[in-house]
Design a binder for these strands. Structure first.
Length: 649
DNA sequence: CTAGGGTTAG
C-alpha cells in the first residue's frame, strides 16, 4: 500500500499543454464538443484495437497526450486494456504512468487496472488498486467486482474472494449482475469449491450460457460427467462453446464413444465448430485408436477450414492421433504438410517416432528442429530420450540428457530420470540404473522405480526387482501392475515361494488382476477379445485357425514360452493358458476375417507377454502379414519374423 | 468485462 502510494507521488506527471482545450472547458457549444469528442474517442479506440505491439500503444499514447486527451478516462481505460491484452506485466512503470496522468480516474479505469493486475500481475497488486480507489472516494461498479473476483480466481485466494463476495452483498446488488455472478462462480470453481460455485449459480436471478458452461466444465473436470450431462440437458440455448465443453469433457474422462456421439448431436443441431471442438474430437479418436475414425475426423477438419495445413493446433493433435492409431505414415504426412510448426508439432512427431520404435527418425527430427526457431521443451526431451532407450542407444541418450539443462535450459524432471533409468535398465546396466534411481537429485516417483522393475523383467533379475518393488509398494500400494510384474519376474526365475507371497500380498490388499483384453479392427468395426474367452460366436473357427497357425510355427522352431505363465501349474495347463491370450485370439480372428494382405492392427490394454511377442514374430513370417500390436507401452511392428522393438520392451 | 484447449515417463 505504502509503496504504491509513494511510487505514485514521485512519478512525473506531464503537464497538459495550455494551448489545448480541456474536455470540460467548453468554448464552443457544449453539444458540439461532445459530438467531436465521441468521434475522436471512437477513432482512437479503433486504432487501439489494431495495435499488436507495445510500441504501437506507446505511439498512440504519445498522440493522446500531444492532443491533450490524457484526461479521457474512456480512452485511457481502453489503452490499459490493450496493454493487458498484449501481456504487459502489471503494474510495471508504463501502465502506472499512463494511469497516473489521469487526475480523476473513473471507476472503469480503476477496474481496468485491477483487471490488468489479475491477468498480468498479482492478487496483492490488484487489491492495492482497489484499496486506493476506495480511499480516493471512488465508488465501485460491477466491473470492479468482476475484476476483483478474477484476481482472486487467478491468485487462488478463496478466503479473500469470500470476503469480497460478502461485501458485494452488503454494498448491494452487485452479485445480481450477470457478469459479476459469472466471475464469482469462476472464482469458486478455480479455487476448487464446486459446491460454492453451484450455490451462486442456483441463487443467481439471471443466468446465461456462460454460467452454465462454467459449471458444466467444472463437473467434467471433476470427473462427474453425469452431473455435467444433467446440466447440459436442462440448458435450452446451447452454443458452440458449451457443446465443445461436453465433447471435450467426455474425451478427457476417457469416454471417447460418448464424445463422438455428443459431437454428432452437436453437428445435428446445426452448431458450427472450431479448432477447440476439433481438439476434443481428435483426442477421442486417438483414444479409440482406429484408423476409421482417424480418417473421418481428418476429413471433417479439412472441410471445416481448420485443417492441419492452416491450423497448428489441429495439426499437432492429428499427428498425435495418427501415431496412436498406428499410422505413422499419416502422422508424418500431416507433419510435413503443416505451414507452421511449433514445439507441440515437433514433440508429437518425435514422440510418435519413439513409440513406433523409429529412434533414428526421432533423433533426426530433433536435430532438424534445432535448425529452426523452435526450442525444445521438457516434453520434447521425454520423446528423444524414450527413443534412445527403446533403441538401446545409451551414449546418445546420456549425451542428450547432459545437454538439456546446459544448452536448452530445461531442468530434468522425474520423468526425464525415468527415461534415463529405463535407458540404462533396458541396456542391461541394472546396477547403474539402480544407483541413478537412488542418487537422483529429485525424489524418485513411481515411474522411476517402475522403469527399473520393467528392466528387471527383461534381464531376469529378481533381486533388484525386489528393491524396486518395495519402493513401488510404498508409493503406489494399489497399483496392481507392480505386483503382477514382480510375480512374473519371480515366476520366470522359478521362485514359486516368492510368487505365492506376492499373491498373498495382493489378496490382503484386495487387489484383483485387471482382465486382459485385445481388440482388432476389421472392416466391420472393432472386435474385442478377453483372455480365455470361449463364448465368441466364431470361437470354433478361431480355435481351429489358431491351432493351424501354432502347428506351422512349431514346424519352424517356435516353442511356447511357458515361463510367461506365472501360475505354478502343469505344462499342459500353461500351454492352454498361453494359447488363450487375448491377442492371439484377435490375431486368429483377423487372419480369418480381415482383408487378405492388409496390415493387422491389434491393441491391448496391458503389456504384451514374451510368448505372444515371439508368437507374433513367427506369425508375421509364416503369413507374410504386417502385424502391429499396440500394448499399453508402445507399438510393436512385426514383419518377416522380427519386431522393430528388437525384443526390447 | 464472463465460458470451451494441445504433446508427456514405467
Amino acid at each position: 500500500m505504502q509503496n504504491l502510494s509513494r511510487k505514485f507521488s514521485t512519478l512525473p506527471i506531464p503537464k497538459l499543454s495550455p494551448s489545448h482545450p480541456q474536455p470540460t472547458t467548453p468554448f464552443t457549444p457544449y453539444s458540439e464538443i461532445q459530438h467531436c469528442r465521441k468521434i475522436l474517442e471512437h477513432k482512437i479506440i479503433t486504432i487501439l484495437d489494431a495495435c499488436n505491439t507495445l510500441n504501437h500503444v506507446k505511439q498512440v499514447h504519445a498522440h493522446v497526450i500531444g492532443n491533450g486527451l490524457s484526461q479521457y478516462s474512456y480512452v485511457i481505460t481502453k489503452l490499459v486494456r490493450t496493454l493487458t491484452k498484449l501481456g504487459v506485466p502489471m503494474p510495471t512503470t508504463y501502465p502506472e504512468l499512463v494511469f497516473r496522468q489521469v487526475l480523476h480516474p473513473n471507476p472503469f479505469l480503476w477496474a481496468a487496472m485491477i483487471r490488468g493486475c489479475a491477468i498480468e500481475g498479482t492478487l496483492s497488486e490488484a487489491v492495492k488498486y482497489y484499496t486506493l480507489m476506495r480511499r480516493e472516494g471512488t465508488g465501485p461498479v460491477s466491473f470492479t467486482f468482476s475484476a476483483l473476483f478474477k484476481a482472486c480466481g487467478s491468485g487462488l485466494d478463496v478466503n479473500l474472494g469470500r470476503q469480497i463476495h460478502a461485501q458485494t452483498v452488503l454494498i448491494g446488488g452487485f452479485v445480481a449482475d450477470l457478469y459479476v455472478g459469472n466471475t464469482l462462480i469462476d472464482m469458486y470453481l478455480k479455487c476448487g469449491f464446486l459446491d460454492c460455485g453451484r450455490k451462486v449459480f442456483d441463487e443467481m436471478p439471471e443466468r446465461d450460457v456462460v454460467s452454465w458452461t462454467e459449471l458444466i466444465v467444472a463437473y467434467a473436470k471433476s470427473g462427474d460427467m453425469e452431473s455435467a450431462r444433467d446440466l447440459f440437458q436442462d440448458l435450452s440455448l446451447k452454443d458452440m462453446v458449451v457443446w465443445t465443453a461436453m465433447v471435450t469433457g467426455y474425451a478427457q474422462n476417457s469416454m471417447p464413444k460418448e464424445a463422438l456421439d455428443c459431437f454428432e448431436r452437436m453437428r445435428g443441431a446445426g452448431v458450427g465448430l472450431d479448432e477447440v471442438t476439433l481438439l476434443g474430437v481428435i483426442s477421442a479418436c486417438a483414444q479409440l485408436g482406429a484408423s476409421r475414425y482417424a480418417n473421418w475426423v481428418r476429413d471433417i477438419a479439412e472441410e471445416s477450414g481448420f485443417g492441419a495445413t492452416q491450423n497448428v493446433l489441429v495439426g499437432s493433435a492429428l499427428i498425435d492421433m495418427f501415431s496412436k492409431c498406428g499410422s505413422l505414415d499419416d502422422a508424418y504426412n500431416i507433419f510435413q504438410g503443416m505451414k507452421q510448426r511449433n514445439v507441440f508439432s515437433y514433440s508429437s512427431m518425435i514422440w510418435g517416432f519413439a513409440v513406433h520404435g523409429n529412434a533414428n527418425a526421432a533423433i533426426g527430427l530433433f536435430h532438424e528442429m534445432l535448425t529452426t526457431d523452435v526450442r525444445p521443451n521438457w516434453v520434447t526431451f521425454i520423446g528423444v530420450l524414450t527413443a534412445c532407450s527403446h533403441a538401446g542407444m545409451v551414449d546418445q541418450g546420456r549425451q542428450l540428457f547432459a545437454t538439456m539443462e546446459k544448452y536448452y535450459n530445461v531442468t530434468p524432471s522425474a520423468g526425464h530420470y525415468t527415461c534415463m533409468v529405463d535407458l540404462l535398465g533396458r541396456a542391461g546396466r541394472l546396477e547403474e540404473a539402480l544407483e541413478l534411481a537412488e542418487t537422483m537429485p529429485i525424489v524418485a516417483h513411481g515411474g522411476v522405480w517402475g522403469a527399473l522393475l520393467g528392466a528387471c523383467r527383461i534381464h531376469k533379475n529378481p533381486d533388484i526387482a525386489q528393491i524396486a518393488a518395495s519402493h513401488l509398494f510404498e508409493l503406489e500400494p494399489n497399483n496392481i501392475g507392480n505386483y503382477v510384474m514382480l510375480s512374473n519376474i519371480y515366476a520366470s526365475a522359478g521362485r514359486w515361494d516368492d510368487v505365492s507371497s506376492v499373491r498373498k500380498l495382493m489378496r490382503e490388499k484386495g487387489l484383483k488382476k485387471n482382465p486382459a483384453y485385445s481388440w482388432v479392427e476389421t472392416k466391420n468395426g472393432h472386435e474385442k477379445f478377453c483372455a480365455g474367452e470361449t463364448s465368441h460366436p466364431k470361437y470354433n473357427k478361431i480355435k481351429k485357425a489358431l491351432e493351424d497357425l501354432l502347428n506351422r510355427l512349431q514346424d519352424r522352431g517356435y516353442r511356447p514360452n511357458l515361463n510367461s505363465v506365472d501360475y505354478d501349474v502343469g505344462d499342459e495347463e500353461k500351454m492352454r493358458i498361453l494359447m488363450a491370450h487375448s491377442e492371439k485370439l484377435a490375431l486368429a480372428y483377423a487372419l480369418l476375417y480381415a482383408d487378405s494382405g492388409s496390415t493387422i492392427k491389434i491393441a491391448k490394454n496391458i503389456r504384451i507377454c514374451e510368448d505372444c511377442h515371439a508368437f507374433m514374430c513367427g506369425a508375421s513370417r509364416v503369413t507374410g502379414r504386417h502385424i502391429i500390436v499396440r500394448d499399453n507401452m508402445r507399438f510393436h511392428h512385426f514383419e518377416n519374423g522380427t519386431c522393430n522393438c528388437g525384443n526390447f520392451w
